[in-house]
């Protein structure tokens, strides 16, 4: 008994002050990509370093944060200094096309409509489905429940049954072997429902895109309301997306 109390006292209060205080991530953290030399020419590009085809050169350089694995290798696909990572963790968006960054602007996720917000704004129950992920994204979703992030203080909880859920949070490229289970779980969630795709795999297939064993993500199978990019996304990236979806963060990410 004394041991428990002594430990409790020593541990203190560890929950972060987010969202009142913005988290500071280490210098090496690879967050939202920044394009420095937008007018890059195809001569300076080395597509072999861009393993998931996240970069494209149309009128200007574009980077698809939904395909990006936030790795170091891709920085060498461009002339030095033209692509870099910031330490900004805010990246979740409402529409797939918003993940394609052209100029250094990002249209962060917008809030659900009035009716949905009224239903879910203060209490959201989610069922998580891992559909072929490496477990990285799932670990970060799990981490949201620990004392530091303490997801339940925002009224968001993970539930055991899809029938008790307001929506699904999906990770992984959707393997052929999980497609049926995912569809059945989706159908079991009562209407109205929301779907959140977490991680590069769920958005675009990630490193597994093009494998005959996977479906290259959730898009095309079921409609998605929130895309959280990353490999895996930092818990703050997921949390930021969830709070924006519920209309509880007002800043525009600039």
């Amino acid at each position: 008994m004394w041991g428990i109390l002594k430990n409790r006292f020593k541990q203190g209060y560890r929950t972060c002050r987010y969202p009142e205080e913005k988290p500071v991530l280490p210098e090496r953290f690879r967050g939202r990509p920044v394009l420095k030399n937008i007018q890059a020419s195809p001569d300076g590009m080395d597509p072999s370093k861009d393993a998931t085809n996240a970069l494209s050169l149309k009128n200007s350089l574009e980077v698809d944060a939904g395909k990006l694995l936030f790795n170091e290798d891709i920085l060498h696909a461009m002339p030095p200094g033209s692509l870099a990572y910031s330490t900004d963790y805010r990246m979740a968006v409402s529409k797939r096309e918003d993940l394609i960054l052209k100029e250094n602007e990002i249209k962060l996720a917008s809030a659900l409509g009035q009716k949905m917000k009224k239903l879910f704004g203060r209490s959201l129950k989610l069922r998580e489905v891992c559909a072929g992920s490496c477990n990285g994204c799932d670990l970060e979703i799990q981490a949201l429940g620990n004392v530091v992030f303490d997801l339940s203080r925002f009224g968001i909880q993970f539930v055991a049954s899809p029938r008790h859920a307001d929506g699904l949070m999906i990770t992984g490229p959707v393997t052929k072997n999980m497609e049926l289970a995912l569809m059945k779980t989706y159908e079991a969630v009562p209407e109205p429902k929301i779907v959140i795709a977490v991680g590069a795999c769920a958005i675009s297939g990630g490193p597994f895109y093009g494998s005959p064993e996977v479906k290259d993500g959730v898009d095309g199978l079921i409609p998605v309301d929130l895309y959280v990019p990353g490999c895996p996304p930092h818990p703050f990236t997921i949390l930021d997306g969830l709070l924006r979806l519920l209309g509880r963060l007002e800043d525009n990410g600039s």
Binding site: S48, A51, G132, S133, N177, M178, A181, F208
Partner: peptide
């Protein structure tokens, strides 16, 4: 098991070296 099968071994034989390293990092995310 088998629900998580993504075809990693076969892909390791087919994809370029840069992508191989990324796949190796995604065999098991922990």
């Amino acid at each position: 098991l088998g629900y998580q099968h993504r075809g990693v071994e076969k892909m390791m034989q087919e994809v370029p070296a840069v992508r191989r390293a990324l796949l190796a990092e995604s065999i098991a995310g922990d």
